[in-house]
Simulated scan of single mutants.
Amino acid sequence: MINRILNQFSRRGRITRSHYIISLIIFYALTYPLTLIEKHYELSEDGKGIVGLCMFPFLFFILLKGARRCHDRGNSGLYQFIPGYFFFMMLGDSDYGVNKYGPNPKGKGNDTFNTTTDDFQNALISNMKHNPQHCRRWGCQRCSCK
């Protein structure tokens, strides 16, 4: 189970709207009690620092998920810092097919090229055909560079 959680942090790519919304619900469910503690109890400066430190992993978690959701829409992860883009991440549809961040997580259109990423896909294909390190590694079993 721990490996599955660590793989979620290390994987690159795209996530669906539902995965992102579930991540938001988890984020708010875990951080809301911490904010209540900070507001309603007379905490010293050290106590507030400890509460803030406890919130840091959750913030890191939601920023990673937000970046992956931006990737699903074909944008850089920095787009999540644009005011109001949050609504596009929650309500907007995914890019159809493969984009430069990976295949569609729903599997829709992964067998076709996305017109916005044809250059990226062609670069991958040509790199695979003509890369001598690739041929030495796989022994020409996975490419057509014979």
Rank of each mutant, 00 (worst) to 15 (best):
M1G: 01
M1C: 07
I2Q: 02
N3S: 07
N3A: 11
L6W: 07
N7Y: 04
N7K: 01
N7C: 00
N7Q: 11
F9K: 05
S10Q: 14
S10L: 13
S10P: 10
R11I: 05
R11V: 03
R12S: 15
G13M: 07
I15H: 10
T16A: 00
T16P: 00
T16V: 03
R17D: 06
H19T: 04
H19I: 04
Y20W: 13
S23Q: 14
L24Q: 05
L24N: 12
L24A: 07
I25T: 07
I26T: 05
F27T: 08
F27G: 11
Y28W: 13
A29V: 09
A29C: 14
L30K: 08
L30D: 01
T31G: 01
T31P: 01
Y32T: 02
Y32L: 15
P33I: 12
T35R: 09
L36Y: 01
L36A: 13
I37F: 06
I37E: 04
K39Y: 12
Y41T: 06
L43S: 04
L43D: 13
S44F: 10
S44G: 11
S44K: 11
E45L: 15
G49P: 14
G49S: 14
G49M: 12
I50E: 02
I50A: 11
I50Q: 03
V51N: 13
V51D: 01
V51K: 13
G52I: 09
G52A: 01
L53H: 15
C54D: 10
C54P: 02
C54H: 03
M55I: 04
M55F: 07
F56G: 00
F58G: 03
L63R: 09
L64R: 12
L64K: 08
K65C: 00
K65N: 06
G66I: 03
A67K: 02
A67S: 07
A67C: 08
R68I: 03
R69N: 12
H71V: 01
D72T: 03
D72Y: 07
D72K: 01
G74D: 08
G74F: 02
N75K: 10
S76A: 11
S76D: 07
L78F: 07
Q80M: 11
F81T: 08
P83N: 09
G84C: 02
G84K: 08
G84V: 01
Y85W: 06
Y85I: 04
F86E: 05
F88Q: 09
M90D: 08
L91A: 12
D95K: 06
G97Q: 04
V98F: 12
N99G: 09
K100Q: 11
Y101I: 04
P103H: 04
N104E: 08
K108P: 05
G109H: 07
N110I: 02
T112D: 11
F113Q: 08
F113Y: 12
F113L: 13
N114G: 04
T116F: 10
T117E: 02
D119H: 01
D119Q: 04
F120Q: 05
Q121M: 12
I125L: 02
N127F: 06
M128N: 15
M128T: 14
M128L: 14
M128I: 10
K129M: 03
K129E: 12
H130T: 15
N131G: 08
P132A: 13
H134P: 09
C135E: 06
R136Q: 08
R137W: 15
W138L: 10
G139A: 03
C140R: 06
C143D: 11
C143P: 08
S144I: 13
S144L: 13
C145F: 00
K146H: 09
K146R: 10
K146D: 14
K146S: 11
